[in-house]
Amino acid sequence: MSKPLPDEFNHLQSLADEWALPTFAARYAKRTSVEMAELQQCYDALLPAMPAIMEFLNQYPYDQQRPAPVENLMQLAMSFMDISPAVELFFQPTVPYGKEWKEAQLSIHC
């Protein structure tokens, strides 16, 4: 368990090991480097858990350091958001006919 989760989310452990990634760039690189089937599987497994995950994470102020398992859970939930357009909208990992994403930069300030 390289990326432990809070106990109540143990059932998502195998996903966390793959998808609890610390940066947007890492999460987007992962999304665009795997097959659609893996994205669908990840999305389907996280979707029913998301309401409970959000309720849990809502107890933690964003501007304070969180225990590692909580941080991992947050990163996993951010991966859910980052893969959601691929699953819900594009039906492929990348934006169809989109600009090559490696030719642009995204920096996050918050």
């Binding site: 309720e55 964003y62 939930a77 959601s84 934006v95 642009a104």
Partner: peptide, 28 residues
Amino acid sequence: VPPKTAAERVAMEQTIIMLWDVVLEDLS
């Protein structure tokens, strides 16, 4: 408005990813 909780930050990620993917469409 910046996120106040970890859940709000996760919610913000959906705004960010949609901005990014939509801009990749626009710039194409």
